[in-house]
Structures are given as structure tokens and as C-alpha cells.
């Protein structure tokens, strides 16, 4: 043990144990702060990258991913995508889409990327889906989500802003036009409340 200590450079032996313990404590604080801050302050999340491309509350057919048109990293190019940047500040949002084949998904994400709702295509379910996204804060006022329609399902959003993403894997080039046509039928529109 003594021999090991003697091998340390002289400047290193000047570092006191209080310095090491204090630094370790501060390192822990820096570690936790950095980890929690990245989703909130980091400039590179998907929402921020798509914000300029997507007008609010409007479904947009995204350009097929290629090396020159790829909007986000690790986005598979064997699928077509449509997305809607929602803003529930002025009310609810009606979303409708067709989920026709295995692998198709309709997902709702927070700006940090959390997926708070997802609907996959399923063989034993009708392919047309529609629902209304309502702000969670409406619960405080109405003791329940405001119903905008008697027919539509309602999804409570934990955030005011976020993304709706519709992913349609291609079954082959021959299906490309058909897949694109189905994606273009998807919609994302603000709805006026009916009481």
C-alpha cells in the first residue's frame, strides 16, 4: 500500500481527500442536471427538427426518406411518413387515418419524443381510425375531457404541443402510389367544441 502511494506524482499527492469527496458530490449533481436538462433544453430533438417543416394542426405528407431528403436520423427508408405538429392551445384536434397493413402505426409523441399513444394496424380491426386529441387540462374544468363528438374516441394529451406520426412501411415499389394515396387521406384538423 505504501509503495503504491509513493508511486503517485508529487502534484497528485497534494490533492486532499476533501477535494475528491467534494468533487464527487458535485459530479453527481452535474450528472443528474445534465441528464434531466437534455430533453428539455437540447436543441436536437425531433420536434424541433420538424417544427419548421410542419405547419400547426395540419397533416403533411413527408418526402420519402433518401440520403438527401432524410429529415431525422435512423428513419427507415422502406416506409412513407405523414406527420402533424399539433397545438392544442386553442382546442381539440380530430385525427383520422387509414392503417391498412402490418407495420402501419399512428403514434402521438410529446416534444421530447415520448410516445403517449399508439395504434398499430391489426388484421381483425377496421383500417379506418379516427379520434380526437384533447388537452389534459380540460379535465380540471369539465371533470372529464370535453366531448367534441359522440362517435369519436378521445385521447387525452399530456402536452399542449406534440407530433402525430403516421408510418406506412412499403410492401414494394408496386404499392408505393397506393400507399402514398392512403397517407395523403390522413387528416389532422382542429375541431370546434360541441357541448
Amino acid at each position: 500500500m505504501k509503495a503504491t502511494i509513493l508511486k503517485l506524482p508529487r502534484w497528485m499527492r497534494q490533492i486532499g481527500w476533501r477535494t475528491v469527496v467534494g468533487a464527487a458530490l458535485l459530479a453527481g449533481i452535474v450528472h443528474i442536471t445534465a441528464t434531466l436538462a437534455v430533453p428539455l433544453l437540447g436543441p436536437g430533438n425531433a420536434f424541433r427538427k420538424l417544427q419548421d417543416t410542419l405547419p400547426a394542426n395540419q397533416m403533411v405528407f413527408l418526402p420519402p426518406p433518401t440520403p438527401t431528403t432524410q429529415l431525422l436520423p435512423f428513419v427507415a427508408a422502406d416506409a412513407l411518413y405523414a406527420a402533424c405538429r399539433f397545438d392544442l392551445a386553442s382546442g381539440s384536434l380530430a385525427v383520422s387515418a387509414v392503417l391498412s397493413d402490418p407495420g402501419w402505426t399512428l403514434s402521438l409523441h410529446t416534444p421530447q419524443g415520448d410516445n403517449f399513444y399508439v395504434m398499430p394496424a391489426q388484421q381483425l380491426r377496421r383500417s379506418e381510425v379516427s379520434f380526437v386529441v384533447t388537452p389534459a387540462s380540460e379535465r380540471l374544468v369539465d371533470f372529464g375531457p370535453r366531448r367534441v363528438s359522440g362517435d369519436d374516441s378521445q385521447i387525452e394529451s399530456p402536452v399542449t404541443q406534440g407530433l402525430v406520426l403516421l408510418r406506412a412501411p412499403l410492401r414494394g415499389l408496386a404499392w408505393r402510389a397506393e400507399t402514398e394515396a392512403k397517407l395523403r387521406r390522413a387528416s389532422c384538423t382542429p375541431v370546434a367544441p360541441k357541448r
Binding site: 436536437g44 430533438n45 436520423p73 435512423f74 419524443g113
Partner: peptide
Amino acid sequence: TRAHTSRNALLPIS
């Protein structure tokens, strides 16, 4: 995981 998702601009399905 949340930091990884956000930092890499991912939109993972649950």
C-alpha cells in the same frame, strides 16, 4: 432513455 431519445432526435414507438 429520455435523454437518449431527445438527443438523437428519435421518435420511438412505445
